[in-house]
Structures are given as structure tokens and as C-alpha cells.
């Protein structure tokens, strides 16, 4: 164990906002978000990289922020659930989760929406199998996944529709 607490300076952008901080090497990204930046929408549900409640995007890729040290996010752009909305308007994924009753207690929801975000960025019209695979790293104990899958399908339709309209 080191004698004095070692800290490392890092800079990162979270939901478009730049931050410069010094952190202990052992600080996990999820703690950085929750405890240092007060972004408590990202949750912790397990200790073993199973449940995905802590999922955020690092440079567009979904990761479990409980399995990344904060120092590793130095220079990265991070998107958390708090960054999904724009000027108070819900993101189409958020809207779809609401419309389809895709959440109950809401604890897993932020992680699931960010896993969805990555999926739909790469696959505009995923079939049910692709959706199940894309959320295989996110545990939900309330919904049985049924309405989550519906919500992701609805989000895909919403987003695809928006893009098609804007390209006309």
C-alpha cells in the first residue's frame, strides 16, 4: 500500500462539459461520476461486471463504468444518462422507454438506455435477437425485459423516422 495517497490529474468531458480533476488511481469511473461530479443517474448493482447498471458511453462505446478506473478516462468524452436529453427535451430513447412502460423501479434504466444508444448508433433497425444480444450485459429485475425490448424497437422507429424526415 502506498504511504501517501497518490493522485493523478485528469481532464475529461462529461455530457459536453469539460472537467479537470485530480483522482486517486483506484477511483473507479462510476465513483468519479457519482461522487465527484454528482451525476447520480449512473448506478451500481453488482461487483463483478455483470449487471450493467453503471453503463456509460466512453467515446461512443458502451462500457461498464465500475470496471474502468477514472484515470483511464483521461482525455475521453463520456455520455451519461443525464446527457441524453437536449434542452429539457427527452431523447427518442427516453421517450420510447416512457411510452412502452420500459421501466419499473428505474434503477437499471440509465444503463439500458445507454446500451441502446450504442446499439442504435450502429444498427438502425435491429431485430429482436440483435436487441437481446445488445442488452445481454444489462440486468433488469423488474420488467422481464419484455417492455424494454418493445421500447428499443420503438426508439429505433422514432430515430429512423426523424433521420428520414430530416434527410428529405
Amino acid at each position: 500500500m502506498p504511504d501517501a495517497v497518490e493522485t493523478i490529474p485528469i481532464r475529461l468531458k462529461v455530457n459536453g462539459k469539460s472537467h479537470s480533476l485530480t483522482v486517486e488511481p483506484r477511483l473507479l469511473l462510476v465513483e468519479l461520476l457519482r461522487e465527484h461530479l454528482d451525476l447520480t443517474g449512473t448506478h451500481v448493482g453488482c461487483d463483478t461486471t455483470y449487471c450493467g447498471a453503471c453503463t456509460v458511453l466512453i467515446n461512443g462505446a458502451a462500457v461498464k463504468s465500475c470496471t474502468v478506473f477514472a484515470v483511464q478516462a483521461d482525455g475521453a468524452e463520456i455520455l451519461t444518462v443525464e446527457g441524453l436529453e437536449t434542452d429539457g427535451q427527452l431523447h427518442p430513447i427516453q421517450r420510447a422507454f416512457a411510452e412502452c412502460y420500459g421501466l419499473q423501479c428505474g434503477y437499471c434504466t440509465p444503463g439500458l438506455m445507454l446500451a441502446t444508444h450504442q446499439l442504435l448508433a450502429r444498427n438502425k433497425r435491429p431485430d429482436e435477437k440483435a436487441i437481446r444480444k445488445a442488452i445481454a450485459g444489462n440486468t433488469c429485475r423488474c420488467t422481464g425485459y419484455q417492455n424494454i425490448i418493445k421500447a428499443i424497437q420503438a426508439a429505433a422507429r422514432n430515430m429512423d423516422g426523424v433521420q428520414q424526415r430530416s434527410s428529405v
Partner: peptide
Amino acid sequence: RLLRGRGKFADD
């Protein structure tokens, strides 16, 4: 609140 990440859970 829950969809915006603004739910208030005990650990928050």
C-alpha cells in the same frame, strides 16, 4: 425523473 437520471435512490 427516472428517465432523466434524476431519480433519488438512497445511495444518491
